[in-house]
C-alpha cells in the first residue's frame, strides 16, 4: 500500500471517530436559535442554558444516582461472584459465566421490554427502582469480567499463606485479596459508570413521566425544542467521560483491565 493510501485511511478513520465529537462541540457554540452545523456565529449561551433547564437537572441527578449506586450494587454482587467463579470449581460454572455475560450480548431493547412486561408491570415496581435494578443488571457483566481478570493474576496460595498466619477465610479476602484487586475494582467501577450513564435502549422502556435518565430526557427535549443546548449538553457529557477515563488511565493504567 502506498503511503498516500495509508494516510487517506487513517484520516478517514479519525474523521469518523472524532468528527462527530467536534461537530457536537461547535454546534453547541452556535449563536443562532436552531441546532445547525456549521454554527451561525459563536457564543457560549447554550452551554450556559443547559444548567438552567430544570428537567436536565432532575434527569442528571437520576442518571448520576443510577450510575453510582447501580455500579456499586453490581460490584457488591459481581466481586463475590467473580471470586467464586475463579476460586471454586463449581458445577455449571461455565453456564453461570455465560449467563452473566448475557446482558452484553442481548440487545438492551429486549432487556427493557422483558423487564417492563415481566418485572415492572406485574410487581408494580416504581420507575426509579426498575431503572436501578436494570442498570445494576446491565453493569454486572462488566463487573464480573473485569474483576475476574484481576483475580486471575492473583495466586491462590497467597490466601493460604494469610490463613496459615492466622486469618479467617474472610480476613484473608479483605486483607489480601481485596487490596490486590483494587485496581480491577476501580476499573470495573469506571466502566460500569460510563456504561450506565450512557445507557439508552433499556431505560427508554422504563422511563416514565417525570422520571427519565439524562440521555432519554435529551431525546424528548429534542422532540420539542430543536435548539443547540442538546449539542452543548452532549459535548459536556463527552468531556466528562473523557475526563474520567483519562484520570483513571493516569491513576491505575485503566487500559490494562478493559
Amino acid at each position: 500500500m502506498s503511503r498516500l493510501t495509508i494516510w487517506i485511511i487513517l484520516g478517514a478513520t479519525l474523521t469518523f471517530l472524532i468528527g462527530p465529537f467536534l461537530i457536537v462541540i461547535f454546534a453547541g457554540m452556535s449563536a443562532g436559535e436552531a441546532l445547525a452545523f456549521p454554527p451561525q456565529g459563536l457564543s457560549l449561551k447554550w452551554y450556559a442554558k443547559v444548567f438552567t433547564v430544570e428537567s436536565f437537572q432532575a434527569s442528571f441527578a437520576l442518571s448520576m444516582f443510577l450510575a453510582v449506586f447501580g455500579t456499586i450494587a453490581a460490584l457488591l454482587i459481581g466481586i463475590p461472584a467473580a471470586y467464586a467463579l475463579n476460586r471454586y470449581d463449581l458445577p455449571g460454572s461455565e453456564t453461570i459465566r455465560t449467563i452473566v455475560a448475557a446482558p452484553i450480548i442481548v440487545p438492551g431493547i429486549i432487556v427493557g421490554l422483558a423487564l417492563l412486561r415481566y418485572f415492572v408491570v406485574p410487581l408494580n415496581v416504581t420507575i426509579t427502582m426498575a431503572l436501578f435494578v436494570t442498570h445494576t443488571a446491565l453493569v454486572l457483566p462488566y463487573a464480573v469480567r473485569v474483576v475476574s481478570s484481576s483475580l486471575n493474576n492473583l495466586r491462590a496460595d497467597m490466601e493460604e499463606a494469610a490463613v496459615i498466619l492466622g486469618c479467617t477465610r474472610l480476613q484473608a479476602f479483605t486483607k489480601v485479596v481485596l487490596p490486590n484487586i483494587r485496581g480491577g475494582i476501580l476499573a470495573a467501577f469506571i466502566l460500569g459508570f460510563v456504561t450506565s450513564f450512557n445507557e439508552v435502549p433499556a431505560s427508554l422502556f422504563l422511563s416514565g413521566p417525570g422520571v427519565r435518565t439524562l440521555p432519554i430526557d435529551m431525546l424528548s427535549y429534542m422532540e420539542i425544542t430543536f435548539d443547540p443546548s442538546v449539542a452543548a449538553l452532549s459535548a459536556l457529557l463527552a468531556f466528562m467521560s473523557v475526563a474520567i477515563v483519562f484520570i483513571a488511565e493516569r491513576l491505575l493504567g485503566f487500559s490494562r483491565y478493559v
Binding site: 495466586r155 496460595d157 497467597m158 493460604e160 499463606a161 494469610a162 496459615i164 489480601v176 490486590n180
Partner: peptide, 10 residues
C-alpha cells in the same frame, strides 16, 4: 508455619 514454593508474599 509454611513457606510456600512460590513464597506467596503479599
Amino acid at each position: 508455619g509454611l513457606v510456600f514454593q512460590s513464597y506467596a508474599l503479599f
